[in-house]
């Protein structure tokens, strides 16, 4: 690139920039008028913006701007607006008991609406949009409940969570019998047959016979002597058609080996009590109760 200063282009009669690339020169056309005006308008706007809106960081704080806009305050305002928007239904949710909500068709319909939207935003990630759950995530639409399916039980589970670290969280711990070498692989294999037999399926009778005592010693304390489970300690019923981690032999032996247990957050820290009430009513109703 060589530059021999600006000179006039012969054909168009317009000055060039004075730069030359292998004989090609660039015309020094002025910027389009409309573009310039938009540019100036943007500059004017930005000055106005600095004056009116929070803009410049300082050493201790920032310029707040004349309009006093604050996102933090807007969130607080939005939450207050939400209460206002919920209106009479929201106020009733606060005072009514769970049973009262469910027996009042209008309030129930209202709670269902609130519950549905909150469920979709927060619970559906694990439990699925329809609440049918998946492997390791409880199905909320059936009649099998690890921690109880009454309105109050559901409300408590939502509020404090499961293994969430909250003081009042639902807490149970299935031992990892295999991983922690509490049982031999052969024993686990036989116990698997025992569990299969409990759920009413065909199993190896000899294996079942070998671990009857072992089941009573190791498993019955939580799952009960008949394997019926116990909702107080979150021990699943081994005799029904429902399993959280799968019902084939591999899944059952894997569960005895590893003793998996999922975590559900304590939503009481994020939702107000009436939202949790609405959620409980929504889940309760959708479980066909």
């Amino acid at each position: 690139m060589t530059g021999d200063g600006p000179h006039k282009d012969e054909i168009s009669g317009i000055d060039t920039t004075g730069h030359e690339w292998d004989g090609i020169r660039e015309l020094d056309n002025p910027l389009p008028r409309w573009w310039l005006w938009v540019f100036y308008a943007c500059i004017a706007f930005s000055i106005g913006y600095w004056v009116l809106m929070p803009a410049w960081p300082g050493l201790n704080g920032y310029t707040h701007g004349l309009l006093g806009k604050s996102d933090r305050r807007e969130v607080a305002q939005a939450l207050t607006d939400l209460q206002t928007l919920r209106g009479a239904g929201g106020a009733k949710l606060k005072t009514a008991s769970l049973a009262q909500i469910e027996s009042d068709p209008e309030l129930q319909a209202y709670a269902m609406q609130v519950g549905q939207s909150v469920f979709g935003d927060n619970c559906a990630t694990c439990h699925g949009a329809g609440g049918a759950g998946g492997k390791g995530y409880a199905n909320l639409r059936d009649d099998v409940w690890l921690w109880g399916g009454s309105l109050e039980d559901i409300q408590r589970t939502i509020t404090y969570g499961i293994r969430s670290g909250d003081d009042q969280a639902r807490l149970s711990q299935m031992p990892a019998f295999g991983r922690d070498a509490m049982l031999q692989p052969a024993q686990i294999s036989d116990l698997t047959e025992y569990v299969v037999a409990l759920s009413g399926r065909k199993a190896n009778a000899a294996a079942v016979g070998r671990v009857t005592t072992l089941f009573a010693e190791q498993c019955a304390s939580c799952h009960g002597p008949a394997g019926k489970g116990d909702q107080l300690v979150g021990a699943p019923d081994l005799t029904d058609a429902d399993t959280l981690y799968g019902s084939d032999r591999a899944a059952i032996s894997g569960q005895i080996h590893n003793g998996q247990g999922g975590v559900m957050p304590a939503w009481g820290r994020r939702f107000d009590p009436e939202t949790i009430k609405a959620l409980a009513v929504y889940i309760h109703a959708n479980s066909g109760q």
Partner: peptide, 18 residues
């Protein structure tokens, strides 16, 4: 009819549609 879940299996093996 509910499309999600399309059906639910209950503890006794009965099927529920909503």
């Amino acid at each position: 009819r509910d499309r999600n879940p399309t059906f639910v299996r209950l503890h006794d093996g009965a099927i529920r549609n909503a």
